[in-house]
Structures are given as structure tokens and as C-alpha cells.
């Protein structure tokens, strides 16, 4: 079982999972009944290229502790989207640095429909990072 003990409002992790690869991948982890920390929330996306820089920063401001973009990688059904998004993330990282946010809070990775192990690895690593770092915003 996971590390939900010690969970706080600040350490929720968001997974932006593509509908054709990573979202079914998360379901496959469920089918295998492999547990992971309950602070992980999966949002289904068509292509993560949709999100502007501001979306990520807003999430951290709202108290999200970490974001993993789980894309299809090379298998992305939208040609050019993966590249465009990787470029955007470079800018998000810059902005995160400016705001004093540890850039390890945001990760881009490719997850396939049956990559259970890779999924669990990503989730556990991000949890470690989030637990290691202080919450992204101070309590009001």
C-alpha cells in the first residue's frame, strides 16, 4: 500500500493522461490490482498540448504538489503535438524556476496501455519528490 499516511491538502499529484495511451494504462494498473498512493488523480486528455503554461503554474498555486504528463510519446495520434508540447514545457520550467518551484514537480513521460511497471515507477517517484519538497504554496 502507498504512502497516503501523512497526506496533506498540498501533496496531490495530477496525472494528465492521454485518452489513447496513458489513461487505459492507468486502467490496466487497476485491473492488475496494483496499489499506489491515493493522492494521485488521473485526468483524461486528448492531447496535453492543449494546456498553456499558465495552467501548470495555476495548478501549483492551487496546491497541486506534482504533475506528470503521461503522453503517448512517439505513438501520439496528433502529428507534431509531442514536439510542440515538449517545447512548451521548456518554457514552463523557466517560469517555475522564476517562481522558485522545483522543476522536478513537473514531468513528461510516455506510458502505453499496459506499461504497469512504468506507471507505478513514475507515480512513486513523483510521490517521493513531492514528499521531499515543501508544499508549493504556503497555507493562507
Amino acid at each position: 500500500m502507498g504512502s497516503q499516511t501523512g497526506a496533506t491538502a498540498q501533496d496531490k499529484i495530477l496525472l494528465l493522461a492521454t485518452e489513447s495511451c496513458a489513461y487505459p494504462g492507468a486502467d490496466s494498473v487497476g485491473q492488475a490490482h496494483a496499489s499506489y498512493p491515493a493522492n494521485v488523480y488521473v485526468l483524461k486528455v486528448k492531447a496535453p498540448v492543449l494546456f498553456p503554461e499558465k495552467f501548470y503554474l495555476d495548478c501549483f498555486r492551487k496546491g497541486i504538489g506534482g504533475i506528470i504528463i503521461m503522453s503517448c510519446g512517439e505513438e501520439c495520434p496528433y502529428e507534431g503535438a509531442y514536439k510542440a508540447m515538449a517545447k512548451r514545457l521548456d518554457r514552463v520550467y523557466e517560469l517555475m524556476k522564476e517562481e522558485g518551484l522545483d522543476i522536478r514537480r513537473l514531468r513528461l513521460t510516455a506510458i502505453c496501455t499496459v506499461c504497469n511497471r512504468a506507471f507505478l515507477n513514475e507515480v512513486n517517484q513523483m510521490n517521493q519528490i513531492v514528499h521531499e519538497l515543501s508544499p508549493p504554496v504556503q497555507a493562507p
Binding site: S20, P24, E74, C112, T113, V114
Partner: peptide
């Protein structure tokens, strides 16, 4: 030759 995962292209 694409090395994509078989399940990912068969299940759909």
C-alpha cells in the same frame, strides 16, 4: 517495425 505495444493497437 514501429515497436509500438501490441495491446495498444489491438485493443482499440
Amino acid at each position: 517495425p514501429t515497436l509500438d505495444c501490441a495491446s495498444c493497437i489491438t485493443t482499440p
